[in-house]
Amino acid sequence: MMTAPELTEPKKPMNRRTVGNAEKWGWIFQRASGVILIVLIFTHLFINLMTGDGVNQIDFAFVAGKWAAPLWKWWDFTMLVLAMVHGTNGMRMIVNDYARRPFVRQTLQWALNISMVVIIVLGTLVIFTFDPCPTGTDTELLNVELCRELGRL
């Protein structure tokens, strides 16, 4: 006859050590990523909004010119990942502070985690599959110098 396994510790609490460590690493990550993001984002804002024609210079050709250099691809990728995880972690703390009912809290946490993954995957694909010279595009919209250099024009 089969017997049910004996429950030795039916009221064993969840592993406090693991929970404590998760919060600790979230705390450390928030600070480390914050400092790195200051460098990444302030440079991003300075180049895009302060140099040249500022916001007026931003168009497809401008993005093509920047992403022609691997440095800016990796710069934007790092910024994307760190900012999304930092932002999601911050939103998680706010949700934990205000959403008292477990169902509401868990639903919001899931929504946050899903949007984080979707945005990171989408942004990463866009950065690394970017085509600076799509065929059939009006030449005026392209970075002509770059596309000539690439032999695409």
């Binding site: 497809f60 900012a83 945005i119 942004g123 799509p134």
Partner: peptide
């Protein structure tokens, strides 16, 4: 803003227009 900004930048993959 970050969510919106990634979405609008993603349009470079749709078309320059």
């Amino acid at each position: 803003f970050l969510l919106i900004h990634v979405l609008d930048t993603s349009l470079v993959r749709v078309s320059p227009e």
